[in-house]
Structure formats: C-alpha cells, structure tokens
Design a binder for these strands. Structure first.
Lengths: 199, 199
DNA sequence: GCTTTTAGCTAATGCTATTAGCGAACGCGT
DNA sequence: ACGCGTTCGCTAATAGCATTAGCTAAAAGC
C-alpha cells in the first residue's frame, strides 16, 4: 500500500479548507480523512486530536489573515488605511468563514507560534492607528474598538444576523466612518463632540 | 416510581442555566438530564432534539435579554439611553455567556415566537435611537453599527480576546462614546472625509 | 541489503444523540 | 373510589464520532 505522504501542515490545511466549506462546527476527523484519501485514525499520526487540529487551523488562519490585512493597508495611512483594512477584514471573513471562527479564539498560553502571530496582528493594527497620533491609552481603546466593531459586524453578517441583506455595504462603510470619527486625538476622556461635524 | 413533573419550559430553563455554567459547546443532553434527576431519553418527551433545545434556549434567552435591555433604557433618552443599553448588554452577556451565544443565532424562519422576540429587540433599539432624529437609512446603519460593535466587544471580552483584562471598562465606554459620536443626524450619506486627517 | 523508524491500517472502546417499546403514574369522568 | 386512556420516565438498542492499541509494510539510514 503506497503511502499518502501526509504531514501536519497538510492535514491542517485540508482542515482549514473543509472548515470554510462545511462550517467549523461540522468539521470532523472523518471528513478530513476522506478528503485526504486516508482512514480516520491515520490522522492521529500528524495531529494530536480534533482540538489540536482546531488550534492548527487557528494559527494558520491568523497567519493568512494578518498577511491579507497587511497587504491591504500597505502604502496607505489615516482613514484610507482604516477603510482598506476594514474592507479586507470583511472580505476575508466572508470568504473564509470557518477559518475566521477559529482565528478569533484566544491563543493558548503555551503555544509560541500562536502568540507570535497574535502579536503580529496587534502590531499591524497599531501601525495603522499610528498616523492618528493617539496618546497611549487611547490607542489601546481605539484598537479594541476597531477590533470589536469589525469582528461584530462580520460575525453578524456571516451568521445572517442582519435582517435584510440589502445595503449592508453601506452600513459597513458607515460603521467604519464612525470608528474613524472616534479617532480624533483630542477628547481626553469619555465625552465626545456632540455638536459639530467631524471634519 | 414518582414522576419528575417536567415540562418543555423546565428543560429549556435548565439547559439555559447549564449553558451558562459549562459553556454552550459542552451542553449535553446527559448533563441536563442529570441535573433534572432524570435519565437522558426522558428529555425527548419535552424537547425534540439537542438542536431544538438550543432553539428553545435561544428564544428564552432573547426574551430575557430584551427585557433587561428595555428596563435599562426605560426613562432615558439620547446618549444616556445608549450608554445604559450598552452597559446592560455587556453585563448580561458576561453573566450569561451560554445564553448569549444562543441568542445571536439567526432565527429559523418558521418559528413564530422566535421572530416575534427578535422584532421586539429591533424595535427596542429603534426606540433608543429615535431621539437622535436620524433619517431612515441612517437609522438602519446606526442600529447595525451599535449591534455589531457591542456584540463584537462582549464576544471578544468573554472569549478572552483582549490581552490584558485591565481597563476594559474604559475601552468599552470609549467605544460607546464613539458610536454615539456617529449618531449626529446631519452628514447625509456615507462619505464623511476620506482625504485629510480626521480632525 | 538490513535494520530501524514510522505511516497508515484494522479492530476495539467510550461517549453522545436518538429511537423503540414497556410499565407505571396521572387526569378525568363516572 | 374506580376504571381508562394518555403520557411520562425507564431500560435496551442503534448509530456516529473521537480516540487508542497494536499490526504490517513502506521509507530512511547505515
């Protein structure tokens, strides 16, 4: 019997593809094995468990995701960069729903690779926000706000959470504009400008 | 053998409690049965399947959630109402992580009860936003923005997505303020300022 | 070529959801 | 109080999935 020539990365990559196709919740060891032309127990030579497979997919997904975001934001700055980042974020989540779900899970503390790619993502967002000259704590708040808002939006969108699918593009742009509006460096604490226009 | 006196609502309520305690993903028919002092197959007299139990929990959770939000926003208006709503939203999600996860799932079309409570939630948010005098389409965008941002924030928070647990309160307030900042009625469409610096 | 490692296989275990079918408990009308 | 049909909770059984044990043969190193 000729060997299949698998490797951990092969199994993880296949799992990632399947997660996008059938949904992470329906991803099964048997499904991965079938696609790889192999019997289910054979996978355990390459990934320790289904949980380990999830973690592997998560790390791979984050790596890909960060790269896509970095490419989108490259050469841009300010609001332009934020819009580019947001659009890429949303598109990637829509194109890779399974990967996206895994990518949000908190990194397990003991996984070095995991921590590294997570840090990379944080740095990317910091870089995009650097042009706004926010003081330290406000930069943290801003990064969290953008992460939360974009994540929430794409989660609701792919989950069918929005009633009508119509005009979702416009709603997304509006959300991103609102976030950008909150990036003005002044306004020390928690009482924004309630009277004037943003620019 | 004396009967346990179960009812669909009993099983669903117990499932909701357990979902909060052990996480929705770890909610099992056997667990619910054990807590109710009953054997697993007995549950099937009251709920059709594990999936049906999830749907039941979802509807109950949404009902409770909407009521909490309504109570929080009652008697307030404008930014004050938005803050109250947001704080209640976040607190409820933290106190009921299992319920919260189910509550976000898209309603299945054929469930009348489900649709009703979902509409109720939408109306509540519309009411809170009514004080901002937003033109129709902008009100839709605003509602979606708030839903997305709050949902994303609490999801990341309960999932441990934020690196440091410190200052999360401040970040949340900052996010809500930013959202409120985006609720100013003018600014006709979705093209605020894409060229210069935000302020 | 021979040996040591290791990938992939079959067989087996355990957990979970779910169904079938039994006997007792309950509600109701008399 | 009594019978009677309905319904509840139970045991037994089936099926799917994750995972482990242990065999065999391919691959890799000498």
């Amino acid at each position: 019997m000729p060997r299949a020539g698998l490797a951990p990365a092969t199994v993880v990559a296949c799992g990632a593809d399947l997660a996008d196709e059938v949904g992470l919740a329906n991803l099964t060891m048997g499904l991965v094995a079938a696609r790889l032309g192999v019997r289910t127990p054979s996978l355990y030579r390459h990934v320790g468990s289904l949980d380990a497979l999830h973690r592997g997919i998560s790390v791979q997904a984050r790596r890909e995701f960060v790269q896509v975001l970095a490419r989108a934001a490259a050469g841009r700055s300010g609001p332009d960069a934020v819009h580019a980042l947001a659009d890429a974020w949303r598109r990637w989540a829509r194109d890779h729903p399974g990967r996206y779900v895994t990518s949000v899970r908190a990194a397990v503390g003991d996984d070095e690779e995991d921590r590294r790619v997570t840090d990379e993502a944080r740095r990317l967002l910091d870089d995009v926000l650097a042009g706004f000259d926010l003081p330290g704590p406000r930069a943290v708040d801003a990064a969290r706000a953008i992460r939360a808002a974009l994540h929430g939006f794409v989660t609701l969108e792919v989950g069918g959470g929005f009633g009508l699918p119509r005009d979702v593009d416009r709603s997304f742009r509006s959300l991103v504009d609102t976030l950008i509006g909150g990036l003005r460096p002044h306004r020390d604490a928690a009482e924004p400008d309630r009277t004037g226009r943003p620019a």
